[in-house]
Amino acid sequence: MKKRSKLWLTVVPLYVFTLLFVLGPMIYMVVLSFQTRAEVWGVVNEFTLDNYKNIFHPVYLQTFAESFKLAITSTLFIVAIGYPFGYFMAKLSPVWKKRMMLLLMIPFWTSSLIRMYGWIIIFRANGTLDKLLMGLGLTQSPLKLLYTYPAVVVGMVYALLQFMIFAVYSSAEKLDWSLVEAARDLGASPWQAFRTVTLKLTLPGLLSGVILTFIPSMGLFFIADILGGNKVVLVGSLIQDQLMKAHNWPFAAALSVALMIMTTLMIALYKRVTHSEELEGLL
């Protein structure tokens, strides 16, 4: 009995916290998205669907399409780099696994905003990268990479790669390597064994890595702002602009709800494909 009462002490604050700071704001946001913008400041309590209709305006649809394009491009690069990285990390000796983990964690000790400013120094005209390439004689003039689409992709990959690595790593770590040996023993070439056994069994990690990188890359507006100038406008930037600059809170709320619905759909799809309850690498 005593144990039980103590358990309550730990569970109740958690519920209160979740209700207050997660569910509460979410309900507020959904309510807000059906309200009408007040003429000067704030909202008036008048039900409308206009905020959602507005999303389908070509300009905003274009923004969604751009965001998707950037998210897909970034995610493809992240998969290409992060999957092999996580896979081979799982094969390291325990000591090296710990070292790698530490190396991957260290960047998190600095604000991601500051790390993005670091990329400005590298990418700007006559910056570190230009100097290096020109010094090696590979390019003749500055590349002017800053404020371009590739710069934004690099920033996204850099900011989100760890999530993919950890997701793949945690799933490859659990892999029973004797299964790969069994496949080889039964006549599979290394590639066939990888395709039919390793890849299939690390798929939950890969897919959760995709979700963990794809969803944030739709909303990481500060990367697009810092490294893309005003050229790359994402859903995240749009929401921020509507909220902070245009003061159109209901429309910002509707955009957020739309983004949330897409996210939920992706997680539902993940559960359907992998039959798993949790995202690999999250727990």
Binding site: D176, A182, R184, D185, G187, S189, T196, V197, L201
Partner: peptide, 18 residues
Amino acid sequence: EPNKRDVNTVFQNYALFP
């Protein structure tokens, strides 16, 4: 290579593909 040998193994932990 193991896949080039006419030999098959019953592994200790069975190693069935889950």
